[in-house]
């Protein structure tokens, strides 16, 4: 750590640290307020004198969320969607990243540009053609209609990011493996994959978020089968502009945010170093 630290004079450092703590508090405040709102009794939320604490925390809002709707089911649905997208896009992106970093072939650069350009595509605008495509596949109203497009949309960025990790594995390792008589497949799955795993984790954060956040596809493709709804849709049930049930909204938001938070904290180290690694190469 000391390598980076500048010789900063003490008062300045204290000021910097105070600023950092203050900023951290401001940044964390919305999340704190969300938790607070989720645990507050109903009367206190609708009070015009909001206080930054609560004397009588209650689980009422959570109970309302889980009772009124099949929230548990939506939660599982969201997990299924995000999980499938993460696994599928990680594997596919891993193969593609290996191809573009460890081989030379015609159109390699073209493909790389294509992966970059593919990130530009405004996903929302594609809702229209995707709707018709999913309809023709007979996938509307199923979780498949959410999983497939998200795999496609998270792939380009994943490939782009994974390149750095794949490239960082020394080529001597590959040669050594072949000298030992390993097949290409064996090298790929037994040697390269474990080494690139931290990169895959960092990458999967992005695909996880995009799939977990999805709101537009769920809104457009899950037409009438409420058993296939996902969390964002369920959240909107509580947010009715004319009479929002803020307690319910905050409780539902909490339920929706916590898994992502846990995921982030788990992969936090790899994310920080991973992002550094990905953009540097």
């Amino acid at each position: 750590m000391s390598r980076v630290r500048l010789p900063v004079r003490r008062p300045w450092r204290l000021a910097a640290e105070a600023t950092a703590l203050l900023v951290a508090a401001v940044v964390a405040f919305p999340l704190y307020w969300m938790l607070l709102g989720a645990f507050r009794p109903a009367g206190e939320i609708e009070s015009t004198e909001p206080r930054p604490w609560t004397a009588s925390p209650t689980l009422d809002s959570f109970r309302r969320v889980f009772e009124q709707h099949e929230f548990g089911r939506y939660f599982v649905n969201s997990l299924v969607v995000a999980g499938s997208v993460v696994v599928a896009s990680a594997l596919i992106a891993f193969l593609a990243a290996t191809a573009v970093t460890r081989f030379r072939f015609r159109f390699r650069t073209t493909l790389l540009i294509m992966f970059l350009v593919a990130q530009m595509v405004p996903v929302e605008a594609l809702t229209i053609p995707l709707f018709f495509l999913m309809r023709d596949f007979g996938l509307l109203n199923t979780l498949g209609s959410l999983i497939l497009p998200h795999i496609a949309f998270s792939l380009p960025f994943a490939v782009w990011m994974l390149r750095g990790f794949v490239r960082a594995v020394p080529e001597s390792l590959e040669e050594a493996a072949y000298l030992d008589g390993a097949s290409r497949a064996r090298f790929l799955w037994r040697i390269l994959l474990p080494l690139v795993l931290p990169g895959l984790v960092a990458t999967s954060v992005f695909s996880f978020i995009s799939a977990w956040n999805d709101f537009l596809f769920a809104k457009s493709f899950i037409i009438s089968d409420t058993s296939q709804s996902t969390l964002p849709m369920a959240l909107l049930v509580f947010y009715k502009p004319d009479e929002p049930d803020w307690g319910g909204v905050m409780a539902a938001s909490t339920v929706m945010t916590v898994p992502v938070l846990v995921f982030f904290v788990l992969v936090q180290r790899r994310l920080v170093s991973g992002l550094g690694g990905a953009v540097k190469d």
């Binding site: 940044v27 964390a28 919305p30 999340l31 969300m34 978020i209 977990w212 956040n213 709101f215 969390l231 964002p232 959240l235 909107l236 539902a252 938001s253 929706m256 945010t257 992502v260 938070l261 995921f263 982030f264």
Partner: peptide
């Protein structure tokens, strides 16, 4: 903040 889903 990063982990918070857009909709929440």
């Amino acid at each position: 903040a990063w982990a918070t889903p857009t909709i929440t």
